[in-house]
């Protein structure tokens, strides 16, 4: 993760935020979303940032489906079902669109605090939690897919098969 890389991604993040303001719908051609290439069942933008892929018949890529599952085990007890937000925690489906990927990774890994008179909002550090860290890109692309309305609320009905490389990486990361 080199510095110029991060800057590039940040620019892409800004672009998508601007696009959000201009129109309510997010363009799938947005460089922070558009698929640049695919590698072992996972999709990336031209800048190498993980992204989702939804086929015309609604089939989602496996990592994004995996992200749906892991999100609803690890994140939804604060951020609500489908990344829609709760009474006190932000709607992550929006954060995944407006926040730079590397910032997203940083906040999930290290946490952050907003504690004051009117707010007691604390995001924990998940850096040591394999149930989150092994699936971080999955959770990210799931939120991005739902935030951009490429997939709706609830469980994606159709998904690509899990790739062998995904399984290998998963087993190595989870230690099973």
């Amino acid at each position: 993760m080199t510095r110029p890389h991060i800057l590039l991604a940040a620019t892409a993040g800004l672009l998508s935020a601007t696009a959000l303001c201009a129109a309510d719908t997010v363009s799938m051609d947005d460089p922070n979303i558009a698929v640049g290439y695919e590698e072992d069942g996972r999709y990336y933008t031209e800048d190498g940032v993980p992204t989702f892929n939804v086929a015309e018949d609604g089939t989602v890529d496996w990592p994004t489906f995996s992200g749906f599952r892991r999100y609803h085990a690890e994140c939804h007890v604060c951020h609500g079902p489908d990344g829609e937000g709760s009474t006190y925690a932000p709607a992550l489906k929006k954060s995944a669109l407006t926040m730079d990927y590397y910032d997203f990774v940083d906040v999930v890994t290290n946490g952050r605090q907003k504690v004051g008179a009117a707010e007691n909002s604390v995001m924990p550090a998940f850096g040591t939690n394999p149930n989150v860290m092994c699936y971080l890109d999955d959770i990210y692309t799931y939120l991005k897919a739902h935030g951009s309305e490429a997939i709706g609320r609830g469980r994606p009905a159709k998904k690509e098969a899990k790739s062998d490389v995904f399984s290998e990486n998963e087993n190595a990361c989870m230690g099973s």
């Binding site: 749906f68 599952r69 892991r70 999100y71 609803h72 085990a73 690890e74 007890v77 079902p81 998940f126 040591t128 939690n129 394999p130 149930n131 989150v132 609830g154 469980r155 989870m174 230690g175 099973s176």
Partner: peptide
């Protein structure tokens, strides 16, 4: 609800849930 259990690992002080559910 719909309830789908799956394997999780334990880390002290971290969520240890192991299921996804829709209500």
């Amino acid at each position: 609800m719909d309830y789908e259990p799956f394997r999780v690992s334990y880390t002290a002080g971290q969520p240890y849930v192991g299921a996804t559910l829709a209500m």
